[in-house]
Design a protein around this nucleic acid. Sequence first.
DNA 1: ACACAATTTAATCCTGTGATTAATTTATTT
DNA 2: AAATAAATTAATCACAGGATTAAATTGTGT
Lengths: 208, 208
Amino acid sequence: MIQSKALKKPDTTEEKIKEAARIVFYRKGYAYTRTRDIAEESGINLALINYYFRSKARLFEIIILETLSSFIESILEILIDEQTSIETKIQIIVSSYIDLIIKEPEIPTFIVSELRNNPNELLAKLPLRHKTARSVFSKQYKEAVDSGIIKEPNPLHFLMNLIGMIVFPFIAKPLLMKANNLNISDFNQLMQERKKRIPIWIKAMMDA
Amino acid sequence: MIQSKALKKPDTTEEKIKEAARIVFYRKGYAYTRTRDIAEESGINLALINYYFRSKARLFEIIILETLSSFIESILEILIDEQTSIETKIQIIVSSYIDLIIKEPEIPTFIVSELRNNPNELLAKLPLRHKTARSVFSKQYKEAVDSGIIKEPNPLHFLMNLIGMIVFPFIAKPLLMKANNLNISDFNQLMQERKKRIPIWIKAMMDA
DNA sequence: ACACAATTTAATCCTGTGATTAATTTATTT
DNA sequence: AAATAAATTAATCACAGGATTAAATTGTGT
């Protein structure tokens, strides 16, 4: 189960600042967030941000690294499990990811926008365990290809398609909503539909 | 044929500024772009930016509106043509869009990032002709559904999947490249592969 | 060649905002 | 209770960066 940290009730001042920072950073991004916004959102004195976290930049780095790693790990965790079949994995990933993003809809755009600046520096600091995850999944994927269940030989295409179908509508949300006169519940309704359909679509396209 | 304005050789000072602004805005986004960057990139004096374009904000608005409308129009143009079949449309869209984005790979993330701030204000200023385009395409799509070629009844899902499969890898590029140790030509190679495969995938998933 | 407008330049202004400081209050230790 | 440390506050600093100004240059029409 994916558990969002953003829901944890903060009690210490340090945690209050961090949660407020997360909210404001998610909403406006690093560049448009003023330390005064964070102070106001958390109801603390401006100077405490620098007292507890050395700078706006350091506070931000903590937030984005946590966000990134939990976002990525929650997929890897599922992919890495040798017990569950690929089909089941797809269902789990689609369902839990869409639920997560509906709860925290700013995360995908936050990640994309902020990663534009210094991706290498940031990603270098991420404690990622790709290798094992990738190797486990590649093996499983390769078996599916060999046994003829899946035609597309490259697991990267598979993953791009899967994640893309899940995440892209949230990234394009403003455009989507405007161009089709959708309100939020229309949009969420569409996303709920996709929980059921993406696995079917993926299955169909992968053995085409 | 999609023709990028960014390749037009500027001659007047005003055009020089605009092209430089486009380049820098695409690369760094509005917030991280200093007017001094634009001045340097175009080799003109700082004050000329405010002389020709009233402010950084107004210059930016021109750039992003041009970018957005040409990006959107280039799809609508294809969708709106009643002569071409849906299958052909898919091929044309996939092929020309991937080529366009490979040439100007910063555009998708630029649009997503900048649209996060004031989407409504910006989109309201866009001279979009959705209605006609949508109605033509909806009609054609409905026919395909009625005749059983396509199973998925909602054209929005179709479009989200199509555009998502095209655009998402470019948006996730830094993450993708890092996680899989790809260099740029590896990445572009993958995208070239997708030109052929997306139409096949789309076809398969749509009648699943 | 002259007058007037358009363009360009260097220098300066001014606000927003991240950070710091010194003083004050609260908590902890002995 | 006294002493020391930790936390909090209000006030101020410093400077990056968008904008403006006034002077200098170039262009255009007569």
